[in-house]
Amino acid sequence: MIVGVLNLQGAVSEHVDMLAQCQVEAKLIKKVGDLTGIDGIIIPGGESTVIYKLLVQEQLLDPLKKLIHAGFPVFGTCAGLVLLTQPKAFGVLKAEVVRNGFGRQKDSFEQAISVAGFDAPFHGVFIRAPYLTAVDESVTVLATIDDDKVIAAQYEHTLVTAFHPELTGDTRFHEKFIRLIEKRQDFFSPNA
């Protein structure tokens, strides 16, 4: 299995390190041609406005959008969540996204989060973090803050967190994503 990490701007190497901890090969994605041969892709944290502009400039937005809408596995953290939700970007999650939802950097925080399906709490690192609201019923909510701010969610093969698992060394979200890819591979495999 090879997992791509979108390498236009942001915390790229942190995700590569997490994939290495999960013993999965990572491939950096900068151009359309790089998409060949990967089984899923991570959209890292960074400045969503900048990553969006670079996706457009590199003519990566449309091909990647097509792939994702066809069910290609994708995991987005923070800016990745924003881009996967914004209709002008990937628009695959039916929800509204509030950028910098918790405020500026001075309001950035760490907090233990309970996540659906995880036995122990997950240490959430929120940096100028967004959240989701008005989430469609097709989307599975995995974690919330203040009851109504959705901070982790899944829709088919799309997984998003508003916080940064890649800054914690806790690989549970990355493992969850890898299992999503494996399940899809079983489904498409001629031997299945």
């Binding site: 960074g46 400045e47 800016a79 950097q105 950035s108 760490e110 907090q111």
Partner: peptide
Amino acid sequence: MEKGTTLVKRGMAQMQKGGV
């Protein structure tokens, strides 16, 4: 909830990587 920790301060800079 903890604010102003080393992790969120350094992490903020990590999110700026590759940028101007």
